[in-house]
């Protein structure tokens, strides 16, 4: 009796026929996520710009007569770049969180888990789509603010670098939140109790030096502070932290979050039963 052939399932794993990195698969996932985001452009692109303008109007109105003098003008021009960055960051984290949470709650996650994509490719594709969606949302916001208030925009490439790093960081954060939150209440809770306080305590509206003592430490140990500060520095021409240091801290935080997200996706934490 001839030896039966080895069942295919026991054969050694074939090298991935599409190369070490499945670029086409990752690009497809990015495209799907971006299309999901762009499909709802009135809420995803326009609404954040509208809210940012509303915040500015509120500040200008609350300043009242002080808005005319140089000190009041300094408050407004301090807030504007922070708000643009705030919009970018919020959109990035929302995109990845909502995609993951929605897919799991609707039970369509296998669409993403079945294709031959590795954990790093999955996390990378989700984060790329999140970061790009944040940057896209930032464009109308930046343009509106720039047209109305005549900001200097000292170093556009540096500003773009900080926006990109910040958006990628928040998109990774969104993957973590999306994995953690298996119900919509949990998504809401993560935003209300973790992300929004983190974003508000990061020098969007107030210089970190002006915060009272325990809070300024929170702000200083918050990586979001460094990307917002760096972006503001690139727009206005002066930052609290040197830009290179800010960039380094932002990149380090981003790398740490990336490793964590890739590890959790690889383990299938709350993704696979």
């Amino acid at each position: 009796m001839p030896p039966s052939p080895t069942p295919a399932i026991l054969a050694p794993r074939l090298p991935r026929p599409f190369g070490r990195v499945h670029w086409l698969g990752a690009a497809t996932l990015v495209r799907r996520e971006l299309w999901r985001f762009l499909k709802d452009w009135p809420e995803t692109v326009l609404a954040p710009t509208f809210s940012a303008v509303l915040y500015v109007v509120v500040f200008v109105l609350a300043l009242g007569p002080d808005g005319e003098n140089p000190e009041g003008a300094a408050v407004v021009s301090f807030i504007l770049p922070g708000l643009v960055m705030f919009t970018v960051l919020v959109r990035s984290v929302e995109t990845t969180t909502f995609s993951l949470a929605f897919d799991r709650i609707e039970g369509i996650l296998p669409d993403v888990l079945m294709p031959p994509l590795s954990a790093r490719e999955l996390a990378g594709a989700y984060a790329t789509a999140g970061a790009v969606s944040g940057l896209i949302t930032g464009i109308p916001c930046m343009v509106t603010v720039w047209l109305i208030f005549d900001l200097p925009l000292a170093q556009p490439p540096v500003a773009l670098a900080f926006a990109g790093i910040g958006a990628l960081m928040m998109a990774m954060m969104g993957i973590l939140v999306g994995l953690w939150a298996y119900k919509w209440d949990r998504v809401e809770a993560a935003f209300a109790f973790l992300l929004v306080p983190l974003l508000f305590l990061s020098g969007t509206f107030i210089p970190a030096d002006a915060l009272p003592t325990p809070l300024d430490w929170v702000a200083r140990s918050n990586p979001i502070f460094y990307v917002i500060d760096g972006f503001r520095g690139a727009v206005l021409g002066e930052s609290t932290v040197p830009p290179l240091m800010g960039l380094a801290i932002g990149t380090a935080a981003c790398a740490g979050l990336t490793l964590l997200a890739a590890h959790l996706v690889g383990r299938g934490w709350r993704l696979k039963p």
Binding site: A62, L63, D66, V75, P197, F200, I206, A210
Partner: peptide, 13 residues
């Protein structure tokens, strides 16, 4: 939310 608005406004303005 309201406490955060209050803090920001009192610190900024």
């Amino acid at each position: 939310n309201v406490m955060m608005y209050l803090m920001i406004l009192s610190l900024a303005l």
